[in-house]
């Protein structure tokens, strides 16, 4: 079985996908966003846009966010969000080899 393991993707790749979504769906020209921009300053995105972003990462990267995951540390900027997605999609157990 081939599994596209998201946690094995390059961090840069995840960041680019998230950046592209924000740019395309949440901002539009002339606003731009980069990996270190504060997404929660209230000046770039409003609360509805942040919820859409959360919905996007769950769908795109096939994992689900519980209420306790909606914290500043996970959403402050694209760099930390990508890192969070990577860790949240990592397999719970390291592959043991027995069943593969």
């Amino acid at each position: 079985m081939v599994v596209d393991n998201i946690s094995n993707r390059k961090p840069q790749e995840l960041e680019e996908q998230i950046l592209a979504f924000i740019q395309r769906e949440l901002l539009g020209p002339p606003d731009t966003v980069s990996r270190d921009d504060d997404l929660l300053s209230g000046e770039l995105l409003d609360s509805v846009a942040v919820l859409r972003l959360a919905a996007f990462v769950q769908e795109e990267f096939r994992f689900s966010l519980g209420p306790s995951d909606f914290v500043v540390e996970n959403f402050q900027n694209v760099a930390v969000l990508a890192e969070y997605v990577r860790s949240a999609t990592a397999p719970a157990e390291p592959p043991s080899g027995d069943h593969r």
């Binding site: 929660l40 300053s41 209230g42 995105l45 209420p67 909606f70 914290v71």
Partner: peptide, 8 residues
């Protein structure tokens, strides 16, 4: 704003 956007 950050606290208000992140309910937890």
């Amino acid at each position: 704003p950050a606290a208000m956007m992140m309910p937890a």
